[in-house]
Simulated scan of single mutants.
Amino acid sequence: MSTLTLWRPVGPAELELVRASGRRAWPPRLPDQPIFYPVLNEEYAVKIARDWNVPAHGSGYVTRFAVDAAFAERYPVRQVGGRTILELWVPAEELAEFNAHIVGRIEVVHEFRAGGGDGA
């Protein structure tokens, strides 16, 4: 099976929910979050975790995971800024099915804390 590697920047609360799943699933979206959007570029995920999650939550994390590539093709890739700022848009109501197609575990590859530093 071919897989697609994706990244997702998260704050501490979302990371705890991922850990609670055994690092195998993303938590359901909140009512004001109609889209789950992992990103296709590690550098973009780092920027979000470091520049947005740290100021908002005191820490930010970049996770990496793989999903069945054939399954992932059903979701549109959206360019939300520059040429490399790409997100996969998964409707919130399809997240459980998306989670079922994750291959392996969700891993933390970068950790940022207030005061600086990458603790991964």
Rank of each mutant, 00 (worst) to 15 (best):
M1C: 01
T3A: 12
L4N: 00
T5E: 12
T5S: 12
T5G: 02
L6N: 02
L6A: 09
R8C: 08
P9E: 11
P9C: 03
P9I: 01
V10N: 01
V10R: 07
V10D: 04
V10G: 04
G11T: 04
P12H: 12
E16P: 00
E16H: 02
L17K: 14
L17H: 06
V18G: 06
R23A: 12
L30Q: 13
P31C: 03
D32I: 06
Q33L: 01
Q33I: 01
I35R: 14
F36I: 03
Y37P: 00
P38R: 09
V39C: 08
V39H: 01
E43N: 13
E43C: 02
Y44H: 12
Y44C: 00
A45S: 12
I48M: 08
A49H: 03
A49Q: 02
R50V: 00
D51I: 00
N53C: 15
V54A: 08
V54S: 10
V54M: 04
A56I: 01
G60C: 08
T63P: 00
T63A: 03
A66F: 00
V67N: 01
V67P: 04
D68V: 11
A69F: 04
F71N: 06
F71H: 15
E73L: 13
R74T: 06
P76S: 04
V77T: 15
V77D: 05
R78H: 14
R78A: 14
R78G: 02
R78I: 15
R78T: 11
Q79L: 11
G81D: 07
G81Q: 02
G81M: 01
G82T: 05
G82F: 04
G82M: 01
T84E: 13
T84G: 02
T84K: 06
L86C: 05
E87T: 13
L88H: 09
P91S: 06
P91G: 07
A92S: 15
E93H: 13
L95F: 09
L95C: 07
L95W: 06
L95T: 07
A96P: 07
E97I: 12
N99E: 10
N99K: 08
N99L: 10
A100Y: 10
A100V: 07
A100D: 15
A100C: 04
H101D: 10
V103K: 10
V103W: 07
V103S: 08
G104Q: 03
G104M: 01
R105T: 15
R105P: 02
I106P: 05
E107M: 00
E107H: 00
V108K: 09
G115P: 13
G115V: 13
D118F: 09
D118I: 09
A120T: 06
A120R: 15
